[in-house]
Amino acid sequence: MIADRLQALGSLVIDSLRRFGQATLFLMRALGGFTDMLRKPHLLVDQLYSVGVLSLAIILMSGLSVGMVLGLQMYNTLVDFGTEDSLGPAVALSLVRELGPVLTALLFAGRAGSALTAEIGLMKATEQLAVLEMMAVDPLRRVIAPRLLAGILSMPLLAAMFSAIAILGSYLVAVQMLGVDEGAFWSQMQAKVDLYEDVYNGIIKSVVFGIVVTWIAVFEGYDATPTTEGVSRATTRTVVYSAFAVLLLDFMLTALMFGD
């Protein structure tokens, strides 16, 4: 009994390690394809469109509503202490450091990550990847690399847009509707938010999330069982694994960057 359990656990560990190894080799080969995009920028542009532009609406809408809710909730808390002037920095810091990168990554995994997995999984199921192989075109360079790069480039831009529009949303609620002093809102924010410590670290976070989420998405697609259920399972895995990875990495990065 116990031996069986142990064996199951052992094989799980070995399987996970093997998959991680495969995923790493896969990533390395795909990274090798980044140089191709210098010669064929349209490959990247196409993917920036489907990964970035098509995610814009959900990111902007979520950002705006998160910002407005933050403005309202923080106002209600801070006004009791008469410190509603620090609403600006409170909102901005939580957005720039945490909520912007993390929520964007989660939304991105749901919107763009799942689409990438499904697309690549279906390309595999319909033998489009095999055709590329037979045409002496490396699918990792031709199909995976542009998507990976587009994801890595889009994520920080989307996260910045999320934070920016969320701050505007909280400005609307706090300053325009609830009467927080406009000067205090912005100047306290500027005094408290540091470009290097906060903004820069937030961007680094979102670059890391971009790499990890897109990596998971393209690998799951490439590795999917080429059937209908296989692709559907892979799509689910992308969203679930991405969410776990983002939350775990966020904790580790936060501890590294802001813990002193």
Partner: peptide, 20 residues
């Protein structure tokens, strides 16, 4: 070398496998 060789091999897949 494999890719150099494959450029000289054409293959028509059973399902067509066109880029959709």
């Amino acid at each position: 070398e494999l890719y150099a060789l494959r450029k000289r091999m054409g293959m028509m897949f059973q399902t067509g496998a066109l880029f959709t």
